[in-house]
């Protein structure tokens, strides 16, 4: 475990906790895309099947359980909680799941390391994670009015992706640990999706004004 990986995992954890805390304490999911949250739940459910087959470390297992638990809780809150669900803006969150899920499924069937169920699901989850933030970014751009917590959530997620790339570079040089090129490409694509958001996030932070994305 290197510092980039640890910092990446911690920002990832913080992003999820920020979102859960926001929803739980202010009982509102305004500005949060249910589509993105459902896609993340699907990402974790397909990727972490290995908790049943492989043991890596207690840290690894605990983190996987947290990500699974938190993503499904968030979906539950938005769909089922009687107060939270009222704040969900269904009209604005119109991105279609299958628009992202189907291409990722096809891509996983075409480009993968090994043709096994577990490996295909893992590859699918890598592709899907790369694009799962899109409904959230579209929603932010549409509503423009971004509250602090939602802004921080997206910022922390972007930070997590950037730190993972540094982690791969570090691991390559120190451990000769090769991350498969599928992971590299998906990771880079995912990080680039945040570039635009980062730009406006830092601008608003520098100028000390409320974060607003251009329409």
């Amino acid at each position: 475990m290197n510092i980039f990986r640890l910092a990446g995992d911690m920002t990832h954890l913080a992003s999820v906790l920020v979102l859960l805390l926001k929803i739980h304490t202010i009982k509102s999911c305004a500005g949060v895309s249910l589509k993105t949250q459902e896609l993340y739940a699907l990402v974790f459910a397909t990727r972490y099947l290995d908790i049943f087959t492989d043991f890596i470390s207690v840290y690894n297992t605990v983190m996987k359980l947290i990500f699974l638990g938190s993503s499904f809780s968030i979906v539950w809150y938005i769909r089922r909680h009687k107060i939270v669900r009222r704040s969900y803006d269904k009209e604005q969150d119109t991105f279609r799941h299958y628009f992202l899920v189907l291409p990722c499924l096809l891509l996983a069937l075409l480009i993968h390391e090994k043709f096994t169920v577990k490996e295909l699901l893992w590859t699918f989850s890598i592709y899907l994670e790369a694009v799962a933030i899109l409904p959230q970014l579209v929603l932010l751009q549409r509503t423009r009015n971004i509250d602090n917590l939602t802004g921080q959530y997206v910022f922390l997620l972007g930070a997590y992706r950037s730190l993972y790339i540094l982690n791969w570079i570090y691991r390559y040089f120190t451990e000769r640990h090769f991350v498969h090129w599928i992971t590299w490409i998906a990771g880079l694509v995912q990080t680039l999706l945040y570039a635009d958001f980062f730009y406006y996030y830092f601008e608003s932070w520098k100028n000390n004004v409320k974060l607003q994305l251009p329409a």
């Binding site: 990986r5 893992w122 993972y164 090769f178």
Partner: peptide
């Protein structure tokens, strides 16, 4: 072929 991609990340 050596095992290069151990999936120990999250």
């Amino acid at each position: 072929e050596e095992e290069t991609d151990v999936k120990d990340e999250l």
